[in-house]
Design a protein around this nucleic acid. Structure first.
Length: 425
RNA sequence: GGGGGUAUGCUAGAGCGGUCAAAUAGGGCAGACUGUAAAUCUGUUGGCUAUGCCUACGGUGGUUCGAAUCCAUCUGCCCCCA
């Protein structure tokens, strides 16, 4: 077993640890069960959650055993940490549905086979991980018992020192008792996972440090065992924005929300300054290669971005999709012929062109503009192209004379394409 | 439970009873420049059958020729006291 901990450190995944040396030894000596919590706030993860996922994958590849939990119980409360407002509570059904979506995505990166990995079967040392919902143990909690057994281990004066809580208190934003309990519940998660599965390592974003430590402390007090915590640095892009947001909102792992092509494009378009770090985070390329690509400058850095985009897309959507996205991207921006199959396409009846369609209506209809007014602006500002020819007249009517073969190629701005296929019927 | 405050567009945040589709900043979009980057500059940023019309300033109902602006009430949030 090579030293995963060093590898993670080298890739920049480690921010804080309970004890780096002990963790490194632990990981070197035995199969360690580790866990990461995911919020079930949506049915898909977005690339902001990719750091924990990649770390889990690295650890599993090194022979350790992951547990991914979704906060079905805690999700019903909302984590106050670093949030300015309370989050909406979710129903159990919603959480379960979101959980299924998240599980499907995690399985691209991890082996989380609940069936095979039977806790009671100590004969099989399975590397397969688990996917659990903390509602399974949180919902059945008895309040009095919980206070007596768990609550007594927490000191309020310590808890309110935690950054997340302190901010809320200082900024006089208020903090409901409900939210205040979040830390206890998360600590309890760790305790349960330790007791049930021998979990000895929890990983999470650096904003979770306080909550994770609470769990470490709880296990020590109740079980007298030392378990560990590791946090990742919080991700921001070079221009300070939160990672993974684009014009259209978050970049999702779900192909239905963010197409593989858009996903690929996200990575191609990252800020130069982020490329090197992102290669380390979001690909499994050896660090030598990462360093080589990261040292490229100016125009050459596009090669690095292409590798980044390809690798990241391959992980999220598979090789076939990554190949397609790459081909489409090269075609669209490499000056070559556009790959028709790769771009969003609509089919409309040929007759509609006979009478002509207003150019505004056309751009609106295919979704390149959200309203006719937006389409109007787009056209007036010179961002509307049909078959790569710019049209600036808003009263322009598109007729059959513009057809190239049986299709029209619409473009809005530099990067957004839409193909319309006309069909007789 | 008592007292006070606040509620504006994607976000933050101005808004004198008319000239407010609503200042300003951020964000977004488009154009120029570029490397599908960054920075910078310019334009634009509710909708529509479009020199006008409709919808919007937490909900409802008033006052008024006229309300985002005044009043009442409801709701949410915040603060103080309990």
């Amino acid at each position: 077993m090579h030293n995963v901990f060093e590898a993670l450190k080298e890739r920049g995944f480690i921010k804080q640890t309970t004890n780096a040396e002990q963790i490194a030894n632990l990981l070197a000596e035995q199969q360690v069960t580790y866990y990461v919590g995911f919020e079930p706030t949506a049915s898909s993860l977005h690339i902001g959650s990719l750091v924990p996922v990649m770390v889990m994958a690295h650890l599993q590849r090194a022979g350790h055993k992951p547990i991914a939990i979704i906060g079905g119980g805690t999700g019903m409360i909302g984590d106050p940490t670093d949030k300015t407002e309370m989050r909406p509570m979710l129903s159990q059904e919603q959480i379960a549905a979101n959980g299924r979506g998240i599980l499907a995505q995690l399985q691209r990166y991890l082996n989380l086979d609940n069936e095979i990995a039977d806790a009671n079967d100590s004969q099989t040392v399975s590397k397969a991980g688990r996917f659990l919902n903390n509602a399974d143990w949180l919902l059945s909690i008895n309040y009095i018992e919980f206070l007596r057994d768990i609550g007594k281990h927490f000191r309020v004066n310590e808890m309110i020192k935690a950054e997340g809580y302190r901010q809320r208190l200082e900024r006089e934003l208020g903090l409901s008792f409900l939210e205040f309990n979040y830390q206890l519940l998360q600590a309890y998660d760790y305790l349960c996972l330790f007791q049930e599965y021998g979990c000895r390592l929890q990983l999470g974003g650096d904003d979770q440090w306080g909550n994770i430590l609470a769990g470490v402390g709880l296990v020590r007090r109740i079980e007298g065992e030392q378990v560990h915590a590791v946090t990742f640095p919080l991700l921001t892009t070079a221009d300070g924005a939160k990672m993974g947001k684009t014009a259209g909102g978050a970049v999702w792992l779900d192909a239905a929300r963010t197409s593989p092509y858009e996903f690929y494009q996200y990575w191609i378009n990252v800020d130069d300054r982020d490329v090197s770090q992102f290669l380390a985070y979001f690909t499994f390329l050896p660090m030598d290669e990462v360093r080589r690509l990261g040292s490229l400058e100016d125009e050459a850095i596009r090669e690095a971005k292409e590798v980044l985009a390809y690798e990241a897309t391959q992980l999220a959507h598979g090789k076939a999709e990554a190949d397609k996205a790459q081909a489409a991207s090269r075609a669209a921006f490499g000056g070559g012929n556009l790959n028709e199959a790769e771009m969003p396409t609509s089919v409309i009846p040929l007759e509609r062109l006979d009478g002509g369609i207003s150019i505004m209506a056309l751009f609106h209809e295919v979704g390149l503009a959200n309203s006719r007014s937006e389409a109007r602006r787009l056209i007036q500002q010179g961002g509307a192209y049909i078959n790569e020819k710019q049209y600036r007249a808003i009263d322009m009517v598109v007729g059959t004379d513009l057809l190239e073969g049986d299709a029209l190629l619409l473009r809005a701005g530099k990067k957004r394409y839409h193909r319309i296929v006309l069909k007789e019927n």
